[in-house]
Simulated assay, not measured.
Amino acid sequence: MDRLAQLQAALKPAALDALLLTAPYQLRAFCGAQVSAGALVVTPERRVLLLDPRYQQAVKPGKVEIKPYVGIHEYARALRELFGPDAVRIGVYAPALSLADMQTLNPHGDLTFVPADALINELTSLLSSAEIEALQQAEAVTRQAIEVAFAALRPGVTERQLQQLLLSHIYQESEGPSFEPIIAFGSRTALPHAHPGMTALGQNELVTIDAGAVIDGLHADLTVTRLFGQSERAQQLIDLTQQALEAALQAVRPGVTASEVDEAARAPIRAAGLDQHTLRGIGHALGYQTHQFPILREHGQEKLQVGQVLAIEPGVYLPGFGGVRLEKMIVVTETGGRLISEWRSEERAE
């Protein structure tokens, strides 16, 4: 059963009369629509994509009915009609539906909007073999781009110059970047989300590059930190973070909770007395967004499932000195976690 069929089948158990999805990444995930605006309405009988007429050619026919609209008032009226005259409980993705949208759709207060976030998050996190293969390609492009940037390291090169090289490769080989790349030198590597600037590279400094490419709507995410020159303290941080990463990778398997993976990575960092210098989570799922549920963090009770792809990224950040983050993409398989670069399609049972 495909993702859209599973969504439709979930209506009755959830006591929903209809589901409304409006986030562009969800439109692509559920019906392959590569558009910046629209609405997918799923009822027990129908699956209808409401679109601005200009977007109709961007959608492949077959999975859904396509209904064009003109103007915001017609849009709201068409949605009400699609819900059906007896509809009361409408499932929505709460982060994507504003208060203004709810008031427009429900002027008389006869509808009840029910958050269906958990259902939608779970379905979008479970990827098919074709989707994992696309992510595998995106990961390969990302690795290549990062290596292009590291190959250009020399004293005096700036973070901004590396950013240009990195993005040039990503744009040539993919749909574009998953997010604005993070590139930092020296003490700025202690900033987990440093924006590339005009900082020039010096000797014996840490260099962090965090980037991702998009292929077929699927977002990759990798981070590499290396030492340019020599520094015993910096090398110790790299070795410790590598140990944490390997421990987390070993912990990945179906049924394990997000917090258990987080704790596996956190334990060696805590043993080194540096737990206060980490973030309170060490990863997340990937897919049609860069950050998807489950989030691998302390106290996270979501269980890993076969078909999810995780970005595991432990880091240690020492203000005034520098930081190290290492990130790999891992596929959850029946037998455990596998680096996406080593994954093969026969490991994913559809």
Rank of each mutant, 00 (worst) to 15 (best):
D101I: 08
A94L: 11
I72C: 00
S98E: 02
D117H: 06
A94D: 14
A94Y: 05
L111E: 08
L99W: 12
G109W: 03
P107Y: 09
I90G: 03
E81S: 07
Y75M: 02
F83A: 03
V88E: 12
V88C: 04
R89V: 03
A116W: 05
D110R: 15
N106T: 10
T104I: 08
V92M: 11
Y75H: 08
M102C: 08
G109Y: 09
L111G: 09
R89S: 06
A76H: 14
G84F: 01
I90K: 03
H108E: 14
L97F: 05
H73L: 07
L111M: 02
M102Q: 13
P85N: 00
E81R: 06
L111Y: 12
P95L: 04
A116F: 03
D110M: 12
P115T: 08
Y75K: 05
A87L: 01
V92D: 06
G84W: 00
Y75N: 02
A76Y: 14
L82D: 09
P85H: 01
L99S: 13
H108N: 12
D101C: 05
A116Q: 06
L79K: 07
L105N: 01
E74P: 05
F113M: 10
N106F: 02
F83D: 06
E81K: 10
L79R: 01
E74F: 00
S98M: 03
Y75L: 01
A116E: 08
R77L: 10
A96R: 03
Y75V: 00
R80F: 01
F113D: 11
A100K: 14
A100W: 11
F113V: 04
T104M: 15
M102L: 11
V114M: 07
S98C: 06
Y75G: 00
G84R: 03
R80D: 13
A76R: 13
A87W: 04
P107F: 06
E74Q: 13
R89P: 05
A94C: 02
D86G: 00
L105S: 04
D117K: 10
P115H: 09
H73A: 11
Q103G: 12
L97E: 03
R80G: 12
L111N: 09
T112S: 15
A78L: 14
Y93A: 03
A76L: 02
A118G: 14
R80A: 04
Q103Y: 13
P107W: 07
E74I: 00
V114I: 13
L111A: 02
T112L: 15
A76T: 10
